[in-house]
Amino acid sequence: MRIGLVCPYAFDVPGGVQFHIRDLAEYFIARGHEVGVLAPVDDLDADLPAYVTSCGRAVPVRYNGSVARLTFGPVTSSRVSRWLEEGGFDVLHLHEPVTPSASLMALWASTEPVVATFHTSNIRSRAMHAANPLLRPSTEKIRARIAVSEEARGTVRRHLGGDAYIIPNGVDTRRFAPDGAVTRWSGTPERPVLAFLGRIDEPRKGLQVLLAAMPTILDAIPATRLVVAGPGEVAEIASRLDPRVRSATEFLGAVSEEDKVALLRSADLYVAPHTGGESFGIVLVEAMAAGAPVLSSDLEAFVAVLGDSPSGRTFPVGDIGSLAGTVLELLRDPAERERLSALGLRRARSFDWDVVAGRVMAVYETVIEGADNSPVEPMLRAGLLSRLRWPMRGEV
Results as ranks from 00 to 15, higher is better:
Glu96Ile: 04
Arg145Ala: 00
Val376Ala: 15
Ala177Lys: 07
Ile21Arg: 05
Val227Arg: 06
Asp179Lys: 03
Gly321Asn: 15
Gly161Ser: 09
Thr314Leu: 14
Phe315Tyr: 06
Val6Met: 10
Glu329Gln: 15
Leu38Gln: 02
Lys141Trp: 06
Cys55Glu: 01
Ala127Gln: 14
Leu263Phe: 10
Pro375Trp: 08
Ile123Met: 15
Gly36Asn: 12
Val13Gln: 13
Ser138Met: 15
Leu299Gln: 05
Pro293Ser: 07
Asp333Thr: 15
Ala267Met: 09
Val98Ile: 13
Arg22Ala: 11
Pro203Tyr: 10
Ser279Phe: 10
Thr139Arg: 08
Ala220Asp: 11
Ala68Val: 00
Pro293His: 06
Lys141Tyr: 07
Leu263Arg: 11
Met288Trp: 10
His93Gly: 01
Val13Tyr: 12
Gly394Ala: 00
Leu94Asn: 04
Ala262Tyr: 10
Glu233Pro: 00
Trp185Met: 08
Asp90Leu: 00
Ala131His: 00
Arg347Ser: 14
Ser186Ile: 03
Val52Gln: 02
Pro8Leu: 11
Arg153Ile: 00
Asp23Glu: 09
Glu85Thr: 03
Val261Thr: 03
Ile282Asp: 15
Ala30Asp: 04
Glu26Thr: 02
Ser239Arg: 14
Ala248Tyr: 11
Pro40Ile: 12
Gly253Val: 05
Ser239Gln: 14
Tyr165Lys: 14
Gly281His: 05
Phe315Gln: 01
Asp354Trp: 06
Trp108Tyr: 12
Asp179Thr: 09
Ala220Ser: 13
